[in-house]
């Protein structure tokens, strides 16, 4: 099990491979491996990010920043 933390100025839904999986600015559990991260709502910069999530933990998630 791996963890991501998606930073964004406001609360949005985080989609992991298209699946609504949690909110921005919160820690979300994901399966180990490569995922496409997008946010719900108005377009973001960048529109999506493909990340490989390995060697994380709940206290030390992978940080992914959107604007």
């Amino acid at each position: 099990m791996e963890y991501i933390y998606v930073e964004f100025p406001e609360k949005r839904i985080v989609l992991v491979d298209g699946l609504a999986s949690g909110n921005t600015n919160d820690t979300i559990g994901v399966q180990r491996g490569t995922h496409t991260i997008t946010l719900s709502g108005a377009p973001t910069t960048p529109p999506s990010q493909v990340v490989t999530v390995i060697d994380t933990s709940f206290p030390n998630p992978m940080r992914i920043v959107f604007n």
Partner: peptide, 15 residues
């Protein structure tokens, strides 16, 4: 489900 099937193909070593 193209999003995960496209990216997970490369996880042959990680998962």
């Amino acid at each position: 489900p193209t999003l995960w099937t496209d990216t997970a193909r490369s996880d042959v070593y990680t998962n």
